[in-house]
Simulated scan of single mutants.
Amino acid sequence: MSASGKPWSPLLIDRIDRLSRVRENWWADGRRVALVPTMGALHDGHRALIRTARRLGEAVVVTIFVNPLQFLPGEDFDRYPRRLEADLRTCAAEHADLVFAPSRSEIYPADPEVTVCAGAMGRVLEGATRPGHFDGMLTVVLKLLHLVRPDIAVFGEKDGQQLALIRKMVTDLDVPVRIQSEPTVRDSDGLALSSRNAYLSDAERSSARALPRALFAGRDAAGGGRDAVLRAGRKALDDGAAASPPVELDYLTLVSPDTWTEIPPGMTGPAILAVAAKVGDTRLIDNLPLVLGPE
């Protein structure tokens, strides 16, 4: 409920000029603005992001835009779930103030010729499997940061490489925004919440549970060092590969939290165990922070 006792209803805007007018009013009032960029199909993980934005900001903006620049040919752009009415109800329940849901032509009146280059970090792991994906992601995030001009932007840690790249972009390009991260939200079976989970059949979801099992097994073995982590994680994924349908592993790797480069043998301290695999036609990613002990 709002302060007046009426049901909370965020302002829905689909045009940049209207968004700019609202933002100018907030600036005049001195309100601290928190942004949650999304592609819609909101779930409890997004709710956690909005709650964090609500806690940190005096005005909360949720953007809903399925960004074509970060989808490769043959990927799921056309079938990516679009549920604006349900998303608006979620935003209302979490007391977002404004939902910016522009059309493709509003964000890209013409195909952009100048885009963001993700650099070396954008060419490994997810960037190697999906070349150009991170360039497209960073381009739209930078556009949204310019359009909303938030004080704070909130992102989930599930997309860890994406988060690291956004932090790097904001630092390298002197974007005046604080990047706030929120831990991965998991379902009761351990699977990280993702809009793409809706693609999974019951059997595929059962197989997909091998991903979080591998991560947690690796974290439990972290005191024994890098090789112990990878051995424990691979054992869980071997079980997934034998399931029906099988888990088709892309990578399981330990990386630096800042650079997403592979951890060399003998290194100790903070690291991220990252995994990507296909189950059926659905590609899933997940990661878990841990602290490596000596080998």
Rank of each mutant, 00 (worst) to 15 (best):
T282G: 01
Q70V: 08
G119F: 03
P73R: 12
I152P: 03
R47L: 12
R82K: 14
A86D: 13
G132L: 10
S244D: 14
W27L: 13
R213S: 13
H146R: 15
I263E: 00
L72E: 09
R283W: 02
R130N: 04
G127H: 03
G30W: 12
V229H: 09
V36F: 08
H95P: 03
L273Y: 01
G45N: 05
Q161T: 01
V141F: 08
D44E: 15
R32L: 14
R167M: 02
G190L: 08
G280R: 06
K6Y: 12
D159G: 05
E75S: 06
A271F: 03
A41C: 11
L252D: 06
S244W: 00
H46Q: 07
F134W: 08
R178L: 15
P245S: 11
G190Q: 07
L200S: 02
V62D: 03
L200M: 05
P264W: 00
R226C: 06
R167A: 03
N25E: 15
V175M: 01
L191M: 11
G223Y: 10
M137P: 02
Q180C: 10
V177T: 07
R104H: 13
P131G: 04
S103R: 13
V279K: 05
G136E: 05
P245H: 10
R23C: 06
T171S: 14
H43Y: 11
R21F: 06
R31L: 15
E157L: 06
L138W: 03
F216M: 12
S2M: 12
G132Q: 07
L69W: 07
L145C: 05
I16Q: 15
L144F: 13
R54W: 04
V116M: 10
P264M: 00
R47F: 00
E94A: 12
G225I: 08
D220I: 11
L193F: 07
F134K: 03
V279D: 01
L292A: 05
P102E: 11
D135Q: 00
L292Q: 01
K168W: 07
T282Q: 02
T253D: 09
L163R: 09
G45W: 03
A243Q: 02
E75I: 05
I285Q: 03
G225K: 08
